[in-house]
């Protein structure tokens, strides 16, 4: 456990070093959120159709996405890991006395947390003071706030398990770009990052609900805005945990298989 913790700490302090990058990232994400919201405002402005999600709820949805981008997107890549796998340097990692899955998991987790920690507060703060309808509203209720935070954390764990699968798939395909791109594009759509899930047609929604991606961002953010009421969220939380357990189990299993192959092949 100590080994994981120290990897975690090292990564965290490394990530915090890139301040200029963080500042630029904040500005970019802020602009981005604003742009997306303007499109939604335009769509909502003339439509008399009853929408399944209100504009303020969309605003919450978009701002939380931007603020916690580092926690919810799949296309963050750790080139070091990819090179380790494709370049055959994996042998070094295998010499270490800790279990590889947990080790990499901690590394990826820290990378994302350090990315988000610096960026989320300024974005949330500024977004909270924007004029209507662009404003980030306060959470629906106190319980919703707590619950969405918990859901976001579990969502992050799910996300890291999914990205572990991407890295593991590289053992087979040997092409990091390909796996990453396909996973990222699909995952982004299925997590409601392109358009919010409530706005999708119902057939699409049933696909999305059957998959784990929505638990990474859609689920916590809709709890926050009250679009998913607290009692319903409590019912869905076990499902989220079940997905997490399943993904970790699959990841550990495939990784041990992939590693065995590497060892047999002699690196």
């Amino acid at each position: 456990m100590r080994a994981y913790l120290s990897v975690f700490r090292l990564r965290l302090s490394m990530g915090l070093q890139y301040r200029t990058a963080a500042l630029a990232g904040i500005a970019t994400q802020f602009f981005w959120g604003f742009l997306i919201l303007m499109v939604f405002v335009a769509f909502y402005s003339q439509s008399s159709i009853d929408s399944p999600i209100s504009l303020p709820q969309i605003a919450d949805y978009i701002w939380l996405q931007q603020a916690f981008l580092a926690l919810i997107v799949l296309w963050f890549r750790d080139n070091e890991l990819f090179q380790l796998i494709t370049g055959g340097n994996i042998a070094y990692e295998l010499c270490r006395p800790s279990e590889l899955y947990g080790f990499w998991y901690a590394k990826l987790l820290a990378q994302r947390l350090s990315g988000a920690l610096l960026r989320c507060f300024p974005i949330l703060l500024v977004a909270a003071f924007l004029p209507e309808p662009y404003r980030l509203n306060l959470p629906a209720t106190f319980e919703a706030a707590i619950l969405s935070f918990v859901a976001l954390l579990f969502g992050l764990l799910i996300l890291v398990s999914i990205s572990m699968l991407i890295y593991i798939s590289t053992f087979v395909t040997m092409s990091p770009a390909g796996s990453l791109l396909l996973f990222a594009v699909l995952g982004e759509f299925l997590a409601g990052m392109i358009i919010p899930i409530p706005l999708m047609p119902s057939w699409m929604r049933s696909i999305v609900y059957a998959l784990p991606f929505r638990f990474t961002s859609d689920f916590p953010f809709r709890i926050y805005s009250g679009h998913i009421p607290v009692n319903e969220a409590l019912k869905l939380l076990p499902l989220q945990l079940a997905w997490l357990a399943a993904l970790v189990a699959v990841g550990k299993y495939t990784m041990s298989k992939a590693l065995r192959r590497v060892v047999v092949q002699g690196g």
Binding site: F43, S47, I49, V185, E188, F189, I194, I195, L199, M200
Partner: peptide, 16 residues
């Protein structure tokens, strides 16, 4: 995927 999103938005809202 971005275009699919755009398509779904128009399916719901009809116009912008």
């Amino acid at each position: 995927s971005v275009f699919a999103g755009l398509y779904f938005m128009f399916e719901r809202f009809g116009q912008i």
